[in-house]
Design a protein around this nucleic acid. Sequence first.
DNA 1: CTATGGCACGGATT
DNA 2: AATCCGTGCCATAG
Length: 469
Amino acid sequence: MFQIQSHALRPLTTAHLAQTMTLLSMTADELRQEIEAELSTNPALEMVEERRCPTCNRLLPPHGSCPMCSCPKSDDSEEPIVFISPREDFTPRSDRYEDNAPEIDQPAMGADLPTYVFRQIAPELAEEDRPIAAFLLTRLDNDGLLSVGIDETVRYFHVLPSRVENVLSIIKRANPVGVGSRSPQEALLVQIELLAENKYIPDFTVEIIMNGMDKLSRHQLTELAHQLNASTRKIQEAVRFISENLNPFPSRSHWGDVRLPSRTAVQVYRQPDIIINYLNNDVNNPLVVEIIMPVYGTLRVNPLFRQAIRQVEPKKKDAWRSDLEKASLLVKCIQQRNHTMQRLMQRVVSIQRVAIVQGERYLRQLTRAEIAVKLEVHESTISRAVSSKTVQLPNGRIVPLSSFFDRSLNARTVLCELISEESKPMSDSELAKLMAKEGFQVARRTVAKYRAMEGILPAHLRNTVSYPV
DNA sequence: CTATGGCACGGATT
DNA sequence: AATCCGTGCCATAG
């Protein structure tokens, strides 16, 4: 049983339905691969360089978005403008690499780890360093670790070791963080370095990794404590942190849904699927929501192919026909994906507008089911659309789309604020009282859970000074 | 005795 | 149907 969408595009066949669902749950990057794969194997599908604005159907200039899109609702600054934004090269910060759009020759099928990483870092690399990066990336083992020595690379390219090191350090900071390290140890250290930018790292974490890997892997905590001259408690903290936040084998966190608690640095390196900004970057203007279509041009069924099929010899007719159907199915499904995403974001952004503008503590309680009712689609449709997508906010941060549906993110943000402003460490029950004053009624036990989620230590281990937010 | 984490239960969400 | 989340109860550490 499924609900029929209430508009012109309705799923007619089970194939259509199935493909709509898979496309919907894809990220922009995965969608790009899908399209490229189909494009290179299916002659019935073509891409034309013309771009039309999906909302007003006007022809767009070769670069940039449709300035006219705002026309229908330009005077209503409460309602966001949502549109599909076709782009070949999309980077998280549009102001950075605009002039040198990276030209990457891409293997047509399935983005393996090397390709995935290479795409991320290509803009950061000097032209002449790219072959080095490519060389290194092809020598990754199954765990995402480097299986070639620096010196070997140096000899291969006849360059200074420092240059190789430099390229490698860029690779290691790409997602999945730590790829291209030469040992699990090194990978962990890189991850810590990045996480330290906006998270608290427990004492002894680094020491454990540097000197106690063997004991760590055997869970000999007391011996670790002894060796490092620390209390077992602190060691426990650190070990827990390591197992919850770090990953010695970078490739394993790769495609598997990054199920980390929100706002960890790891996600910063993913490209967003949706970009929210103010119109013309002016805070007084309404919000503009771009849903990224990772292709430059318009995808359509080749009209010549459609005509030619009549004259083709009967032998090949079946093959041609199936190509044609596949092509038109893909086009339809993509349209439908866009349509759903557009309507979804329209709702979400207008509901969570305050949170987007003012910060996460103003997030409203929102469930996928609620949206599903309003849009008259099945709950699972929304689920798929929301999962594994990321949004870039006006302030440049990239967060998972699901955080707009996070029941407790607002409360956790307030909790973090309270703790970062505290003059002396407060116990969980004290915090619970303060939270209640702020309008967040939560049990003491829940405060403890939130703390854990945010990686904040309990009161008696907390230092009053210097707590990085 | 207080603060905190583990376990498990029930209701909501997906 | 499976999973997630807030909460209460209890054990344990300090």
